[in-house]
Design a protein around this nucleic acid. Sequence first.
DNA 1: AATGAATGAGAATTCATTCAT
DNA 2: GATGAATGAATTCTCATTCAT
Lengths: 188, 188, 188, 188
Amino acid sequence: MKAKITEHSVRLFEKKGFSETSIQDIVDSIGVTKGTFYYYFSSKEELLMDIHFRYIDELLKHQEKIFRDETKSYKQKLYDIILMLLSNIKSQGASAKVFFREMQNLSEERLSQIIPKRDQFRFNIQAILEEGIKKGEFRQDLNAEIVTFGILGIANWSYEWFNPEGSMSEKEVTDIFVEMFLKGIERD
Amino acid sequence: MKAKITEHSVRLFEKKGFSETSIQDIVDSIGVTKGTFYYYFSSKEELLMDIHFRYIDELLKHQEKIFRDETKSYKQKLYDIILMLLSNIKSQGASAKVFFREMQNLSEERLSQIIPKRDQFRFNIQAILEEGIKKGEFRQDLNAEIVTFGILGIANWSYEWFNPEGSMSEKEVTDIFVEMFLKGIERD
Amino acid sequence: MKAKITEHSVRLFEKKGFSETSIQDIVDSIGVTKGTFYYYFSSKEELLMDIHFRYIDELLKHQEKIFRDETKSYKQKLYDIILMLLSNIKSQGASAKVFFREMQNLSEERLSQIIPKRDQFRFNIQAILEEGIKKGEFRQDLNAEIVTFGILGIANWSYEWFNPEGSMSEKEVTDIFVEMFLKGIERD
Amino acid sequence: MKAKITEHSVRLFEKKGFSETSIQDIVDSIGVTKGTFYYYFSSKEELLMDIHFRYIDELLKHQEKIFRDETKSYKQKLYDIILMLLSNIKSQGASAKVFFREMQNLSEERLSQIIPKRDQFRFNIQAILEEGIKKGEFRQDLNAEIVTFGILGIANWSYEWFNPEGSMSEKEVTDIFVEMFLKGIERD
DNA sequence: AATGAATGAGAATTCATTCAT
DNA sequence: GATGAATGAATTCTCATTCAT
């Protein structure tokens, strides 16, 4: 039941927004009453926190698997992370939108448990870049921090437009994106 | 007074969110009464619409100036648009966040007035890419549509992290971003 | 202008009700601003009072003319009053509805200026009956007070259903009503 | 609790009018909070609708009992309906006033559920007249439709003046009214 | 005579939350 | 585990009225 509530909530939060979705909306969508909600969650914010944790923990888990894989080149690791993010949209796109858009609805205290994880995800990418520079896979003069923000931008923005049901696959889009930032778009 | 209300609202909406900001919050921040708000706006949503229009119209105006400038190369046009977006953050960053985050709070009908403008901004970038490909500035095999989403992602995501008061200037960040997607990060 | 405001108000009050009609509605229907309204009326209630006075004074004026006409029989006087009320609907039907329905929106003090006039109208009918009884036009055993309420009911209720634009004329309806209460509907 | 709210509301609506009575007034009169009101009614208008239904359904039920009674003459049926309406004042007078005066506060859609019932009440009286004419109880030349409006006027208007606590009983008034429209007031 | 800006009190309604059962 | 009744605080919005110009 708790999982059911969470899943329905994510869908509603994505469509209408956290504040615009009432507990009533949530329980109506499942066919239970408000009492049931409060049996499983002590507050609406706790539910939001739950959604945040589920999302970011899952993402970090996947990322760190890629990150630690010593058989892969650094380019490949970047590729795999982008692909992972894009593939994630189908099952977790709604969660992702809620994650980015509704973070402000968490209290200071709760935010402070989420932000380090979000940052960790970024730092991992930055570390890949830095290692790759050191090992000669990437250009020596890169500003790894800013480039990381660039790569994250490319990937995260796809939540705004990429349709997993559309004519292009996750892999095709990833290919284009990775070629774009690896080789550049300028004609040689 | 109308402009004053709009400005204060943008700041509050950015900080707390549209739904979390009450009309009372807005008028308190100015020192007038609720009646005054409703003298100038017929609803909270109308105010949000106003903010959306101000933002996107301003952006399109700047973009089209760059777009139409025949003295510039296509690379330069991309550069100028990125720089324009980053420079925009200082004065319009709050509006931008509200624009992207709170769009869902507009009614269907109102959204349909905004979305074509937002799309226009993207199509203009895509057109620059397509022209540049034709003229030999960019690689022949580019998928202009997806690359446009990539570039937009890089630029738009900067609203999430770029601090105009920080140690890096808009120009420095733009240089890094443009070099990233023009030349690629891979070591030759 | 004052008359114009009153006329438009009556129409709006009839259609939407006194409380549901705002000063804004009234001035919008004329094309002036609220200031203008308050130049002519000190309050919304004063306007309502004005409407009440116009209506009841006009009615009393007509009634007393009939009442005092010594050439007419008492039956004829009743006939004329019914006809006057029905004919009144075309031009004053809206005022009449406002008069009966919105009286409660007047303060105690203002009500006390209206109620005696309304009662006067009724007493005049009752007086016609009493005189007619004395003079042998009507049955000796009538309860004039209650019968007056009956006649008033017949006439006043027509404001709820009689359509002056419809297929029946005021005169036709009056004929039916007067025959009804003079001769009765029972078959001899 | 729902019934309690309805009862208190009727009394308040009658005294002060629907629009002039706030939800706060209603809940204060019972000693609960506004939330309670909205637990039972989705809007103020729904409450008004409830009151309308209760009133007209009750009335129709009583009327149809009289209407269908084959042991009674048609004169007797008219008598019984008038008596029923007058007797109704004591317990339902407030509802009746609200019914007639506040009908305009219902939406088009809701009105369309009430008006047929109100009309049904009238048609039933008209049918009694028509049958009575056919069976020779009433005069052959009657205009049943208009006479029905006359009888309804007599009865409905009594809600404006009849005081069930006063010196005259419902039966006495009914006697006067029925004699008035059966035998006429004219001296033979 | 008329306007436009502003007020402030109060309106209906929503909603997260509590709690006895 | 789950329900239904109730709360109370906050929210958007309305509106009669005032007043300087």
